[in-house]
């Protein structure tokens, strides 16, 4: 399958799932399900950062326009994550492990390293998202509570989806 086509397919599927399912899932104030981040994690490890950021921008933009509460929130958070993702991969993995087509995953990274990687990615994205949403340190502890809970939830969700749906067999 053509790789770009595969990314486009991921794009549409994950966007649709987020918009149609997770945006309407009301889990309370402290849990905001955003497992769509997995879209950015499914790109190969050596995918250029610039391309990744463009994908992230497009994804976040559509998410904001079609369903988000505030325009630009998801866009900004996604672009932030995309900018830092490749650096995180380099930090988390052992040097020399990666070849150009490897996609981050349990098998490729090892379960512990991959979980840690996902946790970091979600934390970065959520920090950007919730800080921008609150836009002040006035309710800092409240914001921090929302951030922490959502990070845990979404890390679990992403690990789950990765395990069940996107895991590549060697």
């Amino acid at each position: 399958m053509n790789r770009s086509l595969k990314y486009a397919l991921h794009f549409l599927l994950i966007l649709a799932t987020q918009l149609l399912l997770f945006e309407h899932l009301d889990l309370g104030l402290y849990l905001y399900p955003m497992p769509y981040l997995i879209f950015l994690l499914l790109f190969p490890c050596t995918y250029p950062t610039a391309g990744l950021m463009l994908w992230a921008f497009a994804f976040g933009f559509f998410l904001d326009v079609l369903g988000g509460p505030t325009l630009g929130l998801h866009t900004s958070a996604c672009v932030t994550l995309a900018a830092l993702r490749n650096g995180l991969i380099k930090t988390v993995t052992v040097k020399g492990d990666l070849d150009s087509l490897t996609v981050p995953g349990f098998v490729q990274f090892g379960a512990l390293r991959y979980s840690f990687f996902v946790l970091l990615c979600v934390a970065i994205h959520h920090t950007a998202y919730f800080m921008l949403e609150a836009f002040s340190f006035l309710f800092f502890w409240h914001t921090l509570a929302r951030l922490t809970c959502s990070v845990l939830l979404n890390t679990l969700l992403i690990l789950l989806f990765q395990r069940t749906l996107f895991e590549q067999r060697r």
């Binding site: 950062t49 976040g60 505030t70 630009g72 672009v79």
Partner: peptide, 22 residues
């Protein structure tokens, strides 16, 4: 540097959207 510039540009657009709409 190009990546950084792109990042700044995309972030700026996002923030501008954010500010203009909220």
């Amino acid at each position: 540097i190009l990546v950084l510039l792109l990042f700044i540009a995309l972030q700026s657009v996002a923030i501008v959207m954010l500010v203009n709409n909220s």
